[in-house]
Design a protein around this nucleic acid. Structure first.
Lengths: 253, 253
DNA sequence: AAGTGGTCTAGACCACCAT
DNA sequence: TGGTGGTCTAGACCACTTA
């Protein structure tokens, strides 16, 4: 496993970038499972034959991207997709007054089909590729607020069945991560305003033609490979989409 | 100017945090003007009596927050509000097909008044405080796309007149920065869907009752002090709000 | 007590920019 | 050529966790 850093096609100029790349490759290979501890920084530095400072700089960036999690005194771990990570980084709908909470998810439909031109483009597959389409209703504090339509490539999720999807015990991304080894690392969302059609209006308990917030999300894994396309329709009568910008990282003070 | 780091009310545990705090204080005081170069890292390290590594770690965070800008071989500078920074970090409306471009701004109204309860809460002022209200129409590639309603405290912008506002030669935040020494560093946006009223519909060239994306933005300066409240109404027929999430920093590869 | 990450230091060398 | 930031190193010490 001691692959020399100069092995890759081309070594990135700064050494710590090469180390980061090598770490990412190991993560993609699944060398360390989600939730598992990496070797200590001292050991990793040895393995890559770099100083601890350089190793730390590589890990720093992966921590900033939330791929790894450091815990002082315990170790460095592969980030897992649980309720917390979902709430903090992948779910931006908040009550207009009150605290953000985890939505309850009810699966309304699960169907197989072939990719439309739109779906193919967004997921980087050929038109006609085999896909799965899932519709969910999300309730916040009991109220129906969001209708989600998810599209997945059957190539990436070969044996995914409605039963497996329904009977997962945590978030959807946790299912992707644990069962399919697909680690959602980033998401790009495009928002617009639209009007509720009759079916969605009924689900959300609003009038047909009510204004809804439409979120088109592409979820990405390592190297920005698209994994999931999700269209969310949100009733923003009592909820909002929160976008906090201009912060590089946490940096509280 | 050699204020000891232990001077502040309480010194933050890590040394580099104290250095960062001290740098921020200097920026708030205007010790270095926007666009000006800071002393070299070696000199700053001397001044704070810390190692270069520690000094760099403090500057790293301010660079990540886009308060400072490093240029190899030239120096470290106080970030200025120009077209680029605005486009990249404070303007998220993009054409659905095509490149993001700088909008053209037309000022429709400029009026003085006193703060409503809503305005007072959002800007952290007492109800009835004196405010300025400005309405602008933004065109992208010639088409009217956004109506902006801006609310400012007259306390922060004492001598701001319609003429000064109209005759500025760059972005609005550049005006705040250069004329009032107020550096917008961060923004929090809350989005919802709404319907166009008659006045806005006419401005945007859509039907009354057309769906619009409503963006409520609070612009903040150092220490998260609110500076500006802006409500934008966006016609998302041919444009979208882009939200890129999950990246800690740039980290291209 | 042993092992982990977090901070801090001091110094070398490189890449880039101005002159 | 001299000054700037960018990278890399080696090592000391601290804070925290676990056993």
């Amino acid at each position: 496993m001691n692959e020399p850093l100069s092995a890759g096609v081309e070594t990135l100029a700064p050494l710590y970038k090469a180390v980061k790349r090598s770490l990412t490759r190991s993560l993609m290979r699944g060398e360390w499972r989600p939730g598992a501890a990496l070797p200590s920084e001292a050991r990793l530095a040895q393995r890559f034959d770099v100083s601890i400072g350089t190793l730390r700089k590589a890990v720093d960036e992966l921590v900033a991207e939330r791929v790894l999690v450091r815990q002082q005194g315990r170790g460095t771990f592969v980030a897992t997709h649980g309720a917390n990570r979902y709430l903090f980084h992948f779910f931006h709908v908040v009550p207009r007054d009150g605290e953000k909470t985890l939505p309850m998810l009810e699966t309304l439909a699960f169907a197989r089909g072939t990719a439309t031109a739109d779906e193919a483009r967004r997921l980087g597959m050929p038109v006609g590729a085999r896909v799965i389409r899932i519709r969910n209703l999300l309730r916040i504090a009991g109220d129906p607020v969001i209708v989600d339509d998810i599209v997945l490539s059957r190539g990436r999720f070969p044996d995914l069945t409605e039963r497996i999807f329904r009977e997962r015990d945590s978030t959807i991304y946790h299912l992707y991560q644990t069962r399919y080894g697909i680690n959602v690392v980033r998401a790009v969302e495009r928002l617009r305003a639209t009007l509720a059609d009759r079916a969605v209006a009924k689900l959300l308990g609003v009038a047909a033609g009510a204004p809804l917030l439409e979120i088109n999300r592409i979820a990405l894994t390592y190297r920005d490979q698209p994994v999931e396309w999700r269209r969310s329709l949100v009733d923003t009568a009592r909820h909002e989409y929160l976008s906090d910008l201009g912060k590089g990282a946490e940096t509280p003070a």
